[in-house]
């Protein structure tokens, strides 16, 4: 099987990797590039644990082929903090104890950031529907929703 060479911008950096034709972007990120922050919870687009942003659009990386990343920009959880400065969403997830096991957390953070990028002042209902593609089995979502609302507020205040 011949591998395909892919050149993409990942978290702002020009990156190239080899992958097989049927290999998902999720597998390429995890197995080829060591970016294991995105998780495989289902592999079928139902859990959101593998969420990444591809050219500004939130996608399930388990439903995208690695080869499709050619020439495009990919943002993953690993690129969310600026150096040692956490993104407000990351900080609020910690402050609100919005994670128990934490396996869903990278997906939620990436999805929540995409949500707030589009809608900086979501209502509780908008947050709930905006994150309905992400499954969490531990928290019952209460603290996650609160953390996202709080992060939105602090981002609006420019804090």
């Amino acid at each position: 099987m011949t591998a395909i060479a892919v050149a993409a911008t990942i978290n702002g950096e020009a990156t190239s990797f080899l992958c097989e034709a049927e290999e998902t972007l999720l597998d390429a990120l995890r197995d080829r590039l060591g970016l294991t922050g995105a998780k495989e919870g289902c592999g079928t687009g139902d859990c959101g644990a593998c969420s990444v942003v591809l050219d500004g659009r939130l996608v399930c990386s388990c439903l995208v082929l690695g080869a499709e990343a050619e020439g495009r920009e990919v943002e993953t959880i690993e690129g969310m903090a600026l150096g040692d400065h956490l993104h407000p969403l990351q900080q609020k997830f910690l402050d609100h104890a919005a994670l128990q096991c934490g396996v869903c957390t990278p997906g939620f953070l990436v999805a929540a950031k995409a949500l707030l990028d589009q809608n900086p002042s979501p209502t509780e209902e908008e947050v709930r529907f905006g994150l309905a593609g992400n499954l969490c089995r531990c928290t019952g979502y209460d603290k996650i929703v609160r953390a996202v609302m709080d992060a939105a507020e602090s981002m609006r205040d420019g804090r």
Binding site: E40, M80, A81, L86, L94, G102, T105, P106, L109
Partner: peptide, 9 residues
Amino acid sequence: VTGRARFGA
């Protein structure tokens, strides 16, 4: 929250 934690896989 940064994706560094190492889970089973």
